[in-house]
């Protein structure tokens, strides 16, 4: 019995150290230690047949052999798993799991960018209703009735009275009625025109306008302010260009362009060969407007400007068709 046990121990030890993988090792374990008919199990079961005086000694030996085999198996198992861990390298080229994060609409991101630029220069945001009275949308802004200036903005009317604001300027009026100068404010928002949807028109689009009223505001301040905006949008080399224009609510009035950053004014496809990108309108606040809000009693002047956010966003991201902004294809929303 004793010899039998020692032989089993020796053979098993060899087999364990010879096992090349976990399953081979498992095979050895089952054959020797298996509960049903493992070789050692069978020996242990047959111990009952031994004479009583031999039993304690053999019993002790059986336990030792079992412990040694178990230890050898477990050591080998560990060794084998270590080898395996080194050998099996995960395929790091498999696509990872992306965190699920969405995106605000481009129009709102550009709006916020502009708001932040002007916030840094002391401007605060004011908001107002999208459906307005003709009084706030036109009359306070020095659009005389029956004047062709009204044709500059094809107006959508509300059945039963009121207009869909054609610009965010009425917010400036409301703000001035509620605040005393000095004023620095911007008003972003949705505006409406009677335009059929096409690649460059939409009945709904977005504007941001700004207003600064104080003692001794100069037209050169307007240019400086817009130049600062251009630099923050397009980098330190950006330049603005003012051109004479007409708006009923400003005098003098100007269109403002940014000299094309791409061709520096020479004309290229980005600027449609114009050398400049038309950004918006601006000017010095008209006295009629100050009168309408009761500011004529102060010794102040003011500057105002406005620009189309959608168009600016399109230029920044090189989007050729306005409709893309309102179509809301997820691939577009996630792609810009």
């Amino acid at each position: 019995m004793r010899e039998k046990l020692l032989a089993l121990l020796e053979r098993t030890a060899e087999e364990v150290s010879g096992a090349q993988d976990i399953s081979a090792l498992e095979e050895v374990r089952v054959r020797v230690l298996g509960r049903k008919d493992g070789e050692l199990t069978v020996i242990m079961r047959s111990m009952g047949k031994l004479p009583a005086e031999e039993r304690p000694e053999i019993g002790k030996l059986v336990n030792q052999v079992k412990a040694q085999i178990e230890e050898a198996i477990s050591a080998r198992k560990e060794a084998l798993s270590e080898v395996k861990a080194v050998e099996v390298v995960p395929d790091l080229t498999l696509p990872g799991r992306r965190p699920r994060v969405g995106r605000a609409h481009l129009i709102n991101r550009v709006t916020d960018q502009l708001v932040d630029i002007f916030h840094g220069m002391g401007f605060e945001v004011a908001l107002g209703p999208e459906v307005e009275s003709e009084y706030y949308n036109f009359e306070c802004l020095n659009f005389p009735p029956d004047h062709p200036a009204r044709d500059m903005q094809d107006t959508l009317y509300v059945k039963g009275g009121g207009v869909f604001r054609t610009h965010t300027s009425p917010v400036q009026i409301r703000y001035m009625l509620e605040h005393q100068p000095p004023i620095r404010m911007v008003c972003p928002g949705r505006v409406f025109r009677a335009d059929v949807v096409d690649a460059s028109h939409s009945p709904v689009f977005h504007q941001i306008e700004g207003l600064l009223v104080d003692k001794m505001v100069r037209m050169s301040d307007l240019k400086g302010l817009l130049a600062e905006m251009a630099k923050q949008l397009y980098g330190a080399g950006a330049k603005v260009n003012l051109r004479p224009s007409f708006f009923p609510f400003t005098e003098p009035s100007a269109e403002f362009d940014i000299v094309c950053v791409n061709c520096e004014g020479a004309g290229c496809s980005t600027c449609g060969q114009k050398g400049r990108i038309e950004i918006g309108g601006a000017g010095m606040v008209h006295q009629e407007v100050f009168q309408a809000v009761g500011y004529d009693k102060y010794d102040v002047t003011g500057l105002a400007f406005g620009l189309g956010i959608d168009r600016l966003a399109m230029m920044m991201c090189k989007i050729g068709d306005l409709r893309l902004l309102f179509e809301n294809d997820l691939r577009f929303l996630a792609g810009v």
Binding site: V115, H119, M121, G122, F123, E124, V125, A126, L127, P182, R184, L212, D214, K215, M216, V217, R218, M219, S220, D221, K223, G224, L225, A227, E228, N241, L242, R243, P244, E251, P252, S253, A254, L303
Partner: peptide, 28 residues
């Protein structure tokens, strides 16, 4: 004044930065 600026050239208007009162802006 607009006619004057127009004839002188809007491009001749220098860039300055608004001076005057600065209040801490507070958004709506």
């Amino acid at each position: 004044a607009e006619e004057v600026a127009r004839l002188a050239g809007y491009d001749k208007i220098p860039e300055s930065f608004p001076s005057g009162t600065f209040r801490a802006p507070k958004h709506a």
